[in-house]
Design a binder for these strands. Structure first.
Length: 339
DNA sequence: TACGCGACACACCCAGGATA
DNA sequence: TATCCTGGGTGTGTCGCGTA
């Protein structure tokens, strides 16, 4: 059918689809999986960078044809919205049920089930869940509350590496007796909150912190507004090129290498008491703990509120280059985690 | 009851493997 | 070789539990 379809304006189609999805609050994942048979990432790619029709192969045209067909019938939107509702219901049911299960498991020992989070948020297949609906009494999901010393340890780790390697995360998790997902989430949230703090600070200082400097979407551009060299934590294209301010001595900031032989880490064995204590030995550095304020301050100062798009672009290119160089270099670098 | 914060959904980017 | 697609990673926004 694709072969027979007339030439389509991919740009118009994707634009329209985007509009419809946002207007109706429909996610790319749902749309992709149910309508196009593609993953969310592919949908995002398609919608963000549609290729001209003539440059597409038969297979490449298929999603556009599907989108076109989908757009033609307004009832399709309704159907998708229904599906969304059903998915949500199924998800909630599952969530409750898995919670109750996990709680019984957890009560036995925390290492047990890792499915609360790891259990793939991809609930797209939630349809098989509603079948086994346990007669549970809707137990609420237990919220993880980190102990102060755990937070402290995490903050220290953050100071060392705002973007820790998986290995590091695992180490942290085992040291703190937490799930790796919890550690990951913590770093995720912490970065986010630090960034927000920064933003607020900036505004309060009246440094012209243009709201558009919002870290996120602007990440490409923002990642670069000069702060790069100053090693600001935020704004950089994380995981790729960034040099956290507090990171002190350099480098080895690549987390993907995995070679982060935490050898050095365990070395500093100064009487680790509890979790925190153990971590202290791991992350033994000068008491500059209160991370946010320290790194935040430098960061804020370094930030240039007024960033022209040109500047952003240049910086972005620069970052890209830096990132590639770092990555290339990082391959032979024995990254060690020294605390 | 408001707020802090962990968890998660979603959008996006990029690298790299698969395939036409 | 160009294109398609996946997988992994990030940031943002929001939900909802736990606590002050």
């Amino acid at each position: 059918m694709v072969a027979m379809s007339p030439e389509l304006d991919t740009y118009v189609i994707t634009k329209k689809v985007k509009e419809v999805l946002t207007d109706n609050n429909l996610g790319q994942r749902l749309f992709g999986e149910t309508i196009l048979g593609l993953t969310q990432g592919s949908v995002s790619d398609l919608l963000a960078r549609p290729k001209p029709w003539h440059k597409l192969s038969l297979k490449g045209r298929e999603p556009f044809v599907r989108m076109q067909l989908w757009l033609q019938d307004p009832r399709n939107v309704e159907k998708l919205m229904d599906m969304k509702r059903m998915e949500k219901k199924a998800y909630m049911k599952r969530r409750h049920s898995s919670v109750s299960e996990s709680q019984t498991v957890d009560s036995g020992g925390l290492s047990g089930g890792d499915f609360s989070q790891g259990g793939s948020p991809q609930h797209g297949l939630g349809h098989h869940l509603h079948q086994q609906q346990p007669p549970q009494q809707h137990l609420k999901k237990a919220r993880v509350v980190l102990a102060p010393e755990e937070k402290e340890a995490l903050k220290r780790a953050y100071q060392q590496k705002p973007y820790p390697s998986p290995k590091t995360i695992e180490e942290l998790a085992s040291q703190l007796n937490l799930k790796t997902s919890t550690v990951i989430n913590w770093f995720h949230n912490y970065r986010s909150r630090i960034r927000r703090e920064l933003f607020i600070e900036e505004i309060q200082r009246g440094e012209g912190g243009s709201p558009s400097t919002r870290a996120g979407k602007a990440s490409e551009g923002d990642s670069c507004d000069g702060t790069e060299s100053d090693g600001t934590v935020e704004g950089t294209r994380p995981g790729h090129e960034h040099h956290p301010a507090s990171e002190g001595e350099g480098g080895s900031d690549h987390r993907d290498d995995g070679t982060t032989s935490a050898t050095g880490s365990n070395a500093a064995g100064t009487s680790g008491h509890h979790k925190g204590g153990a971590l202290d030995s791991l992350f033994s550095f000068p008491e500059s703990t209160h991370v946010s304020s320290a790194s935040v301050a430098t960061t804020t100062a370094a930030r240039n509120p007024r960033d022209s798009s040109l500047r952003k672009k240049k910086a972005a290119n620069l970052n890209n280059i830096i990132h590639r160089l770092e990555k290339a270099a990082g391959k032979d670098e024995p990254h060690e985690w020294e605390f």
